[in-house]
């Protein structure tokens, strides 16, 4: 078992969007823990609630979305005196001073599209220096020096020139480096990375992933890594949370999930990864998960996955919502039939 200190505990988090068409239960009872310095992967299809979970932790869920239930306990590391403080982020006003001192400084985030996530009309240095001045209370000259150091730290070539450049003058990889420099400039204890490499080509993706590994080794922050790419999960994370329709359907350490995944959805995801050489060996078509993600306004009764599941048992899966079962310590699965089907 992992005995590192808990950093963030997400408990039964519910974030709903109140739209004219109805209520979308984007996150509906998500629960997981993040320990200090660990990397937790969150995986799932588009619309499964991964990004909303991340934004809930940051408290930047956009209207008409709202956290309606659950807790996000943030165990704030003590400043040298060893005493830590526990804050329920869901109880804070998103605009409050306390939340704003946490957001961007202690918990920071990088986004999917580094081009559009940077302002087109402000220089890189302006946007990074702003965070440093905001949270560290330093003057312009000092923040400029710190920005250059930070750009250098994330492997930006010619940092003292790049600092005065605009997003459109940089390549995709450089932009994401700038975003990472911005997010890490105040040495957060948790970095949330929302599909940070999805918009990049594979070579650049590999560079950014290596960079994040190195930075984590040096700075020791925890990373919540959101992606739909299982390859990236395998490479980057220690533990994995699999989400489906706003719920965590399986969680465990990365080896368990990849080699002993229990939930039919996890299995289906794994089978949909193309492997080199696979076709010549067993002449099999690449498995796709059949069906579509359900309509978020009308979730199926029972287990949300049952219309797409090959092990669906009428009268059980389509009537009762399964609860989270502990298979072994640290490995949980939300499936009524996991003992029967494997």
């Amino acid at each position: 078992m992992d005995n590192r200190d808990l950093l963030v505990e997400v408990k039964d988090l519910k974030t709903y969007f109140y739209l004219d068409e109805g209520v979308v239960q984007a996150v509906d009872g998500a629960a997981f823990d993040i320990r200090r310095g660990e990397t937790l992967g969150v995986v799932g299809e588009s619309g499964c609630g991964k990004s909303v979970t991340a934004r809930s932790i940051m408290r930047i869920v956009a209207r008409p979305g709202r956290i309606v239930g659950g807790q996000i306990l943030y165990h704030r590391p003590g400043n040298g005196n060893g005493r830590q403080q526990t804050i329920d982020l869901t109880s804070l006003n998103p605009q409050s001073y306390e939340m704003r001192t946490i957001r961007g400084a202690e918990i920071s985030m990088i986004f999917q599209e580094p081009m559009t996530s940077l302002s087109p009309v402000h220089t890189i240095g302006d946007q990074i220096g702003e965070v440093i001045r905001l949270h560290q209370g330093v003057d312009k000259d000092e923040s400029r020096q710190k920005t250059i150091d930070m750009l250098d730290f994330v492997g930006m070539p010619l940092p003292d020139r790049t600092i005065d450049q605009y997003a459109h003058q940089l390549s995709g990889g450089m932009r994401q480096r700038a975003m990472i420099a911005m997010a890490l400039s105040c040495h957060p204890s948790l970095l949330i990375a929302d599909e940070p490499t999805t918009a990049l080509d594979v070579t650049t993706e590999a560079q950014i992933l290596r960079l994040m590994h190195r930075l984590q080794d040096e700075l020791g922050m925890a990373i919540l890594f959101i992606t739909h790419n299982l390859g990236v999960i395998a490479q980057m994370t220690e533990k994995v949370v699999v989400m489906y329709m706003g719920k965590v359907v399986e969680q465990g350490d990365v080896d368990t999930i990849f080699h002993g995944g229990m939930h039919p959805y996890t299995r289906a995801l794994l089978e949909s990864i193309p492997r080199l050489g696979q076709k010549t060996r067993d002449r099999r078509r690449l498995a796709a998960i059949r069906g579509m993600v359900p309509d978020p306004y009308a979730l199926p009764r029972g287990c949300a996955f049952h219309p797409r599941c090959s092990f669906m048992k009428p009268g059980l899966c389509d009537t009762t919502a399964p609860s989270m079962q502990e298979v072994e310590p640290g490995h949980k699965v939300r499936c009524a039939r996991y003992t029967e089907i494997w």
Partner: peptide, 8 residues
């Protein structure tokens, strides 16, 4: 959103 995530 990036700006918001900075804590501004």
């Amino acid at each position: 959103e990036t700006a918001r995530a900075k804590g501004l």
